[in-house]
Amino acid sequence: MKQHNDGEPTMKDNPEQAPDSGNRSLRLGLLSLLVIILLWEVLARGTGWSVHIFPDPLTVVFSFVELLRDGTLLRHTVASLFRVTAGFYLAVCLGVPIGIVLGRSVNARSLFNPIIQFLRPISPLAWIPLAMLWFGIGDPPAIFLIFLASFFPMVVSTTIAVQNINPTYFQVAANFRFSYQETLTRLILPAIIPDVVTALRMTVTIAWLVVVAAEMIAVQSGLGYLILDARNALRMDYVMNGMIVIGVIGLLLDNIMKRLGDVESSKWGIQAR
């Protein structure tokens, strides 16, 4: 009943006001979530599976509160986020400059592209044995794996972004006697920002995917470890808790990157007025 009342004015206002359409899509999103939870409940009841194999939503909620209270969840989340931040940050700081060099210099491209294209399709997970051997146990191997996973997409998208800059702009720069530094800061960087922001958005998702896998092997903390540990204890409700937190944080990370893309300077004023 209440939902129905909420729904009506939204539909009426929709054509006039943009914010309302955002509200509406949010509401629809929540609705689909609700349906999934309902289905889950029905399935959990209907199949008659044991709680150890297929916990129902309520059990998961209770154990979620439990994990939240004793701080386990927070500790593991922080550990995971730290690794992702470190690895991702390293990858961006190295990948973007290298991508710019590769995009601008044909020689550099001929020299390094074969190596990059050869290493790129190798899953970061294939590096696990080497990473553990080289960096031991703890944060470094996990950070290394996340770095590997995010580095190549960043380099490749930056290279493509730089190559796609309209050559006319470089002629304008030459015409107005830009120095190398000015060409970089006033032409190349602003020109690639929109593409790089998109790449960041894609890559942070990959990094977040990989951290969980990395934590299942080399470390004693993090959401990946939580899931693995819970599986060993046959606590599927904890496993689901871990999954839920991973999903929510993935959503948040994507949102942050999307916000970054909304900054006016990165959109060249598109939709600004």
Binding site: T168, V172, N175, F176, R186, A191, S265, G269
Partner: peptide
């Protein structure tokens, strides 16, 4: 070599899209 003593006005799209009118005019 190109010089700011001979300025080329391009067929189209020679303006830097990430700069405002003011910034573009101030380029030289």
């Amino acid at each position: 070599a190109p010089s700011d003593q001979s300025i080329f006005v391009f067929q189209q799209g020679g303006l830097f899209p990430w700069m405002t009118v003011y910034e573009n005019v101030g380029l030289g």
